[in-house]
């Protein structure tokens, strides 16, 4: 939540790799669990920050498949309840729209 205050200082311990790090989490952009864990270690502590840093949820499906998993991983890395991690902002269009169709907008033609 935006109201959630996060103090961010450099990590003191070195990053520890885990066995399941190579597993794909974001199917569209092929982002692994390890990359997400590393991003959190690097200071990306919200879903939007991880998204901007790694492109998780920026692919064709716009996070429909992975956002819950990404959130769980961030929460786990930060040792906070998952409910405290806000889901990435919702954006138009909620389905991909070809530019030719977006441009073909009847309201404007009628003017």
């Amino acid at each position: 939540m935006k109201e959630c205050v996060i103090r961010r200082t450099a990590a003191k311990e070195p990053f520890m790799a885990k066995l399941e790090d190579s597993m794909i989490v974001c199917r569209c952009e092929e982002i692994t669990k390890g990359e997400i864990r590393q991003a959190v270690y690097d200071g990306m502590m919200t879903m939007n920050e991880v998204k901007r840093y790694l492109r998780t949820g920026m692919g064709l499906c716009q996070g429909q498949s992975c956002s819950r998993k990404v959130r769980d991983i961030i929460a786990e890395e930060m040792s906070v309840p998952r409910e405290t991690i806000e889901i990435s902002s919702a954006r138009n269009p909620i389905r991909p729209v070809p530019m030719s169709i977006y441009a073909n907008d009847k309201a404007c033609k009628r003017r």
Partner: peptide, 30 residues
Amino acid sequence: ISQPLTPPAICRAVLGYFPILGRARVVRTW
């Protein structure tokens, strides 16, 4: 807050210069 008429306006402007992008799909606006 996104405005409903802005993405269509941008798309029309772009396609006027790059018609090939008609098939590219807009996945997100902000």
